[in-house]
């Protein structure tokens, strides 16, 4: 249960090795969360740090590309952790557009993870949260989905789909006690973007995690990281297509 000062007891991380996901979990544990499940392909994830901080850490095998397993996973998590206070689907793959252009099957497979996987796990989690009458689903969207760019439109379109899904889910949960926080980071310097040259206004994994914690506390529905990307994208959204198309990245 979330307590009066906003700290929670349980956290489920899907994509249990995600850099951003683990940074969020670590903060929640420092603030008092005591039972955590890290769900990742092969059922392995870094547990030591969280255990040292005093958390009871469970592991589970989870593949975003196998939606038929997702409902059972949520059930298993609720059995082992109790009520799910915070659920964070943090899995995702950032392929190169050039590769996708050459290999449409790979593109479709990644979209199935980046969008389809979030739909099945998101709906399964939402059912549980609705039943509980409380709990928060943290959806890691991206500014890449706010307006899709030619430089990475496969990834971007999956994020656009995910963002729309999260908005709709948030509305459908309204009044149930459960809620959704949509996080829209810009370029995050970390493992996923290794080898890429940082875009303007890039942030670190820690900044993203801090902003998410802030969003969980304040009850905000959308969290932009950094916050000034919000006005920037208000402009980006209305740039004429001819200009948008010519953007270098």
């Amino acid at each position: 249960m979330k307590n009066a000062l906003g700290s929670v007891d349980t956290v489920l991380l899907l994509g249990g090795r995600s850099e951003i996901g683990l940074a969020i979990v670590e903060r929640l544990v420092r603030a008092g969360a005591r039972r955590v499940m890290l769900a990742a392909r092969g059922g392995t994830a870094p547990v030591d740090r969280l255990r040292k901080l005093g958390a009871e850490v469970h592991l589970a095998d989870f593949d975003a590309a196998r939606p038929e397993t997702h409902a059972a996973l949520i059930e298993d998590a609720a059995t082992r952790l109790g009520d799910l206070d915070v659920v964070i689907p943090a899995f995702g793959v950032l392929g190169r557009q050039a590769v996708y252009d050459a290999d449409p099957v790979a593109a479709a497979r990644d979209v199935a993870v980046n969008f389809g996987g979030h739909v099945s796990i998101g709906l399964a989690a939402a059912r549980r949260l609705r039943e509980q009458g409380h709990g928060t689903l943290v959806v890691l969207s991206s500014v890449a989905g706010v307006r899709v760019r030619k430089a990475n439109f496969v990834y971007g379109s999956a994020k656009a789909g995910l963002d729309g899904f999260a908005q709709g889910l948030a509305d459908s949960l309204h009044g149930s006690g459960a809620r959704v926080v949509v996080v829209r980071p810009g370029f995050v310097i970390g493992r996923m973007t290794e080898g890429m040259s940082p875009a303007p206004m890039s942030v670190t994994v820690d900044t993203v995690a801090d902003a998410v914690i802030d969003g969980l506390r304040s009850g905000r529905r959308t969290v932009w990281v950094p916050a000034r990307l919000r006005p920037v994208f208000a402009v980006m959204r209305v740039l004429p297509q001819a200009v948008w198309r010519r953007l270098p990245r």
């Binding site: 249960m1 979330k2 307590n3 009066a4 000062l5 009458g133 409380h134 009044g175 149930s176 006690g177």
Partner: peptide, 12 residues
Amino acid sequence: LLTGWGRTAPTP
């Protein structure tokens, strides 16, 4: 939606 006297952490 219910809370206690302190009006924190409402749940349905």
